[in-house]
């Protein structure tokens, strides 16, 4: 190994440390007795978890987050899939504009999405409801779902669908018997990833949620008060949930594809 290789490796380790340090410390501090943690650490405790999860509003927030994530992920995945299929199968005028519409939402700053959604959903009368958050998260999640499904479709032999027609399947039947089974890993992957996006999103949710707070919105509001290690406890649960979802999502698309 060249000396420069060692330097590069050390650099990589430093970079990964920077990226993962906040996640790890949050987990460590959630089990540490100090209110203002420092080095050396205090004693081991599960106190913060007990305090946090004895509050009914924490459970309500987790319930809200779960409902929103389950619904928004389903809608995002459906929307992402039909869009990816359209891109895969058809060429038409204004397709670049169509694709821009599909992929643009993540480039709009969340604060702006929040403001625009707040005004718009208010007009529609669903501001302050969980449905409002679901709608907003679907807009934000669909592009990710679309990207995952499109990637999978690009691995599909275009003759596969035609082969189904050739063997007597109508277009609808071929969709059900061939395209969807082929894309199934990507659909599950997209579902997990968009659930994670929804589960973690707090700015737009904060704008439109009203009294129906999701977990990150609750964290945001606790943060505006004082330093409170309960956040580490709740945050650790949030980390583990979204990390699990993102890891499953990735494993499903990276899995040896037998196409």
């Amino acid at each position: 190994m060249r000396p420069s290789d060692i330097a590069f490796r050390l650099y990589l380790v430093a970079l990964f440390t920077f990226v993962f340090l906040p996640i790890l410390t949050s987990m460590v501090f959630s089990l540490n007795s100090d209110r203002f943690p420092t080095v050396p650490l205090g004693e081991f405790t599960t106190h913060w978890y007990k305090t946090a999860f004895s509050r009914p509003e924490v459970w309500t927030a987790f319930g809200n987050s779960l409902i929103v994530a389950v619904c928004a992920a389903a809608l995002s995945t459906a929307l992402g899939f039909v869009t990816a299929y359209t891109d895969f199968r058809y060429g038409f005028r204004f397709k670049p504009a169509y694709l821009a519409l599909a992929l643009l939402p993540p480039t709009i700053p969340l604060v702006i999405m929040g403001l625009a959604m707040l005004a718009w959903l208010g007009r529609l009368g669903i501001s302050g409801t969980l449905s409002g958050i679901v709608v907003a998260h679907t807009v934000m999640g669909a592009p990710f779902a679309m990207a995952i499904c499109r990637l999978r479709l690009s691995q599909m032999d275009p003759a596969l669908e035609a082969a189904a027609w050739n063997l007597g399947a109508s277009q609808w039947r071929a969709m059900r018997a061939v395209v969807i089974p082929f894309c199934l890993p990507a659909l599950i992957s997209a579902y997990c990833l968009t659930a994670a996006v929804s589960f973690d999103e707090f700015i737009v949710a904060w704008f439109v949620s009203g009294l129906n707070k999701t977990v990150p919105v609750m964290i945001l509001e606790i943060l505006q008060g004082n330093v409170d290690p309960q956040i580490n406890a709740i945050g650790t649960v949030v980390f583990l949930t979204s990390m699990a979802l993102v890891i499953v999502a990735q494993l499903l698309i990276l899995r040896k594809t037998n196409a």
Partner: peptide
């Protein structure tokens, strides 16, 4: 890819402590 989709808010809070 994992941290990119993992609660930015809690990570910022961790930095606040660190």
């Amino acid at each position: 890819i994992v941290p990119f989709f993992t609660s930015y808010l809690v990570r910022v809070y961790a930095w606040q402590v660190l």
